[in-house]
Amino acid sequence: MGTTEVESVIVIKDLVKGFGDKIILDGFNLTVKKGSNVVVLGKSGSGKSVLIKCIIGLLQPDSGSINVFKENIPGMNEDELDKARSKIGFLFQSNALYDSMTIRENLEFPLLRHWVDIKKEEVNRLVKEALENVDLLHTLDMMPSELSGGMLKRVALARTMILRPEVILYDEPTTGLDPVTAREIEKLILKLQKKNHTSSIIISHDMNCVKNTADLVVLLLEGKCYIEGTYEELEQSSDQNIKQFFE
């Protein structure tokens, strides 16, 4: 019996991105296989968020390629980007819920714009299902300002998942949360990944989150992929640059 090679959903080659004279990403390479969770680890300001903003097309890289489902993101026009983005979910560190809308409207908003002909009953069903997945059905008609930080993160996760993306980019999903809520969010990420068979890139410097969610850990240092491996492999490393994250 031969082994089947797992398909790559994201392939990043020689990515360079700078702001003015400062180079943030300097020839970064990464491959994400289908169904896997890749955690990008790095210090604050090392360019982790810049990396995922380049992947989703919010930032334009200076050079290099970012292939998502074999389509190069930097070369796309706005309409092509919109189409590609329907397969990619993005969970913001700040949650970025629309604060003038109720939770229901927050979840309906992307649905109604992506699936123009969708019926009202179907929208209701999908919204309720998304909120049930994060155990927050009772918040349906509440405003974001009425929810706690952990609840906001779960609603943001529900909104990210509602369009059934195949790839999800998480920008520091547990930052700013208490340890108990952070563990709940990690469990939720894993539960939804299992349920929807998604692939993910998780940006984090929360080592518990890294340990609990990562299939592969990539250390971003000085704009490059310094090392990649499993959590256990990196934990046992004697390299000072790696060790400092595990101490």
Binding site: L58, F90, A96, P110, R113, H114
Partner: peptide, 9 residues
């Protein structure tokens, strides 16, 4: 940015 990544202009 959240609107942009949701494919909304």
């Amino acid at each position: 940015d959240a609107m942009t990544v949701s494919g909304i202009k």
